[in-house]
Amino acid sequence: MEPIIVVEDLQVAYGDKVVLDGINLSVEPGEVFVILGGSGSGKTTLLRNLVGLMRPQAGRILIDGRDFTSMSAAERMDIRRTMGMCFQGSALLGSLSVADNVALPLREHTKLEESTIDIMTRIKLELVGLGGFEDYLPSELSGGMRKRAGIARAMAMDPKVIFYDEPSAGLDPIVAAGLDELIRTMQSTFNLTSVVVTHEMESVRIIADRVCVLHQGRVAGIGSLDELERSDHQYIQQFFARRPDDPGTADADYARSLTNID
């Protein structure tokens, strides 16, 4: 089967600072693909490129075989309708109710009757366990509920791919485990391709089919969790063993990041 997402030689920089360098990876249809890495490793930047919120300096991103990086704005808008994204802070529109947030893509992109949109919205909210919260404002929900509402909104247009940015960040372990279960349920029920950016190893063990480890803007390794756990890559071993940096190395890295001198 053809990969649904292919990234080729991706390079991204903020000014002179290269954040992603020569990224190559592919995501298979129906898998949960986790992008793992420490703070500042470039994983969120990679995700923002995958959903088209940033344009890379070099390289290509193919979504369903179409080059996402060289498309016109209108084509990008079109292809985005086949994607869903759950933001770290949920990014629900604060002025709209939960139901209106979920209904927003349906109202903007379809000519469905309002009654049909209403039913579809309720179905999506039931799916994420938020039935009965239709009329709540995002500010009236807890962090976990907001993330669930974000998933419901991302699912509104029945996307082929769904992207999650740090889904468990800031949540207590029980709520985070519930979200992990939800991500797995979505994948198994709808055969939904999921790309998850996280640094939480507990979540990765539950949800991941394959994992891509990023380190300093480069791919340190790609494979199943078992394969990566057997990897002899120093950073992957350190990350999986939750071992701190050597203080001397950490200080030198910090000084380098401030001065840009190697």
Partner: peptide, 11 residues
């Protein structure tokens, strides 16, 4: 709050 980004991603 990334709401503008959310709009863009939703097309």
């Amino acid at each position: 709050n990334e709401e503008i980004d959310a709009l863009e991603v939703m097309g």
